[in-house]
Design a protein around this nucleic acid. Structure first.
Lengths: 239, 239
DNA sequence: CGATGCGTTGATAACTTTCAAATTTAGTGG
DNA sequence: CCACTAAATTTGAAAGTTATCAACGCATCG
C-alpha cells in the first residue's frame, strides 16, 4: 500500500545479521532436531531485499500469498481484523525471523512494519521448485512449518491464562528473543501488545505498573524499554 | 497406562470410514491446495490398528514421539496439564482425523481416548524413510503440518473472544466436523469443552442455557447432544 | 516550547470465576 | 423394569478480574 523500495538482487552481499538462536530446525524431514541449526539457512539464498517504512503494509489479508519473508532489520507484525473491528495481532517478527508462511493461495493475515524494516523476499513458486530438487530446502520448509506449529501451541497456552500471566509470558518471550541482558527493547506499542495478548491497552499498562510496584520489572522513562529486575519472580508468575 | 489391545498388521482390510471433508491438502509441497484431497491418503497405508478404552492414555507428554495416529472410530483429546493443575485441551480428534504430529523427539502434549477408540498407528521413523523416497508422502506430511498451523491460528482467534463467542464457535466447528444435520453429537464432556475453550464448566453450561433461552439451540435430555436451531443467529454471534 | 499522540491512572460497569447447592442423567443391582 | 447411587450438569449468589469510559501526564517531534 505504502512505499516500498526497489528490489535488489544482491541479497548475498546483504549485511544479514547472524540468525539468532531462534527455533531448533529439523535436520530430517519430520525428524526431531538434535542440532540447533538456525532456520532458513538455504531458503533465502536467492532472495531480493526490500524495505518498508514504519506502519507500511507488507501484504494484506486475502492477497495472493506469493512470497516468503525474512526480517533483516526492524520489526514486523502480522494481524487480522475481526468483523467488529477488533484486531488480533498474530505475531511479532524480529531480525532473523521468517514470516508470511501460508498453506493456501491467499494470505490469512496481514503484515505491517512496526518500525522501518528491511526484509528479504523470495518467491514462493521459486521455493516450491527448489524444494522439489533440493531436499535441504524441503527440510527447512517443513522445519519452518513445525516451528510455526510449536509457536502457535505456546500461544494458545498463553491465551487461556490470566492477564498477569500473559503479560509476564510476553516479557519473558521477548527477553528470550532479544537477548540483551535484562533491558528489553520493545519494538511494538502497548496497543500492539494488548492486541497480541487479547487484552486491552489499559490492562496491559496496569499490569506492567503492578509488576513495577512488586519490583519484578522497571519501567524507564523511555516507554519502549522494560528492564527485568527479578526473572525468578517473573518465571514464577508465568504459571 | 491403561489397557491397549494387540497390534494387528491388517490395516489394509480395516473398515476405514471415508475420510471426511477435513482439511484441504496441498498437492505440491508448499503450494496452495486447489483440489480438496483428503489428508493422510498414503500416510497410513502401512499402519497397524490399535484400540483404546474410554479415558485410556494413548501417549503422555514428554514421552518419545515415535508414532503418528489416525482416528478410525471413537474420539481423542490432546491436552496439557499446567503446573498449577489447570488442564488445557489442545484438540479433539474424530474419525478421519490425524493426531500426534510432533516436531521434536518428545510429545509436547498428552493424548487420551474420549470414548472407546480405534486408531491406526504408524511409526514415525517409517514415515521419515518413506518421505525420503516418496514425494507424495512428504507432501502429505507438509500438508498435515499446514493444516495444524491453520487450525491453531483459528484457535488463537477463538481464544481472544468472549465466552459466548467461544462456545458458539465451538458448536459451529463441531457441526462442521460432524455433518449430521443440525443435531450435533458431542463426544466430549462439558469439562472437556471448558478446558478446550479456556473457560470454566459453569460458564460453558450457563452459556449453553442462555443460547437455548434465545432459541438458538436446543439441549435435549441426552446431554451429549445439541441441536442447532438457528445457524444464522449463531454465525452472527460468532464475531 | 507547544502540539500531539501514546501511555497511565481512576471510577464504574460488565463479564467470568468461585464456591455452594440443587437437578438430572447414566449405571447398577434387585 | 424400578429404585438407588454416583457422576455430570445446571443453577444461584457473591467475589474477583478485566473492559469501558474518562481524564490526566508525559515523551516525542515539529
Amino acid at each position: 500500500m505504502l512505499t516500498q523500495t526497489a528490489i535488489r538482487r544482491d541479497a548475498f552481499r546483504h549485511p544479514v545479521p547472524p540468525t539468532r538462536n531462534i527455533p531448533p530446525a529439523a535436520t530430517k524431514v519430520f525428524d526431531g532436531a538434535k542440532d540447533r541449526k538456525p532456520l532458513g539457512q538455504s531458503i533465502f539464498l536467492m532472495s531480493a531485499a526490500k524495505s518498508f517504512p514504519r506502519n507500511a503494509e507488507i501484504y494484506g489479508e486475502n492477497e495472493p500469498a506469493d512470497y516468503l519473508y525474512k526480517v533483516i532489520s526492524g520489526a514486523v507484525r502480522t494481524y487480522k481484523i475481526l468483523s467488529d473491528g477488533r484486531r488480533q495481532v498474530e505475531g511479532f517478527y524480529l531480525p532473523g525471523d521468517i514470516f508470511g508462511l501460508e498453506f493456501s493461495d491467499e494470505h490469512t493475515l496481514s503484515a505491517e512494519a512496526i518500525a522501518d524494516a528491511n526484509v528479504l523476499v523470495i518467491k514462493r513458486s521459486m521455493l516450491t521448485a527448489l524444494a522439489t530438487h533440493d531436499a535441504g530446502v524441503a527440510r527447512e520448509l517443513f522445519a519452518l512449518a513445525g516451528y510455526e506449529v510449536r509457536r502457535m501451541r505456546e500461544r494458545v497456552l498463553m491465551l487461556i491464562k490470566t492477564a498477569q500471566e500473559r503479560v509476564v509470558g510476553f516479557l519473558l518471550e521477548m527477553a528470550e528473543r532479544v537477548p540483551a541482558g535484562n533491558a528489553v527493547e520493545l519494538a511494538m506499542s502497548r496497543q500492539d501488545i494488548a492486541d497480541y495478548l487479547g487484552l486491552t491497552i489499559e490492562t496491559v499498562s496496569r499490569t506492567l505498573s503492578s509488576l513495577e510496584d512488586s519490583a519484578a520489572i522497571e519501567l524507564p522513562t523511555s516507554r519502549r524499554s522494560i528492564v527485568l529486575r527479578n526473572r525468578t519472580a517473573l518465571s514464577h508468575m508465568n504459571g
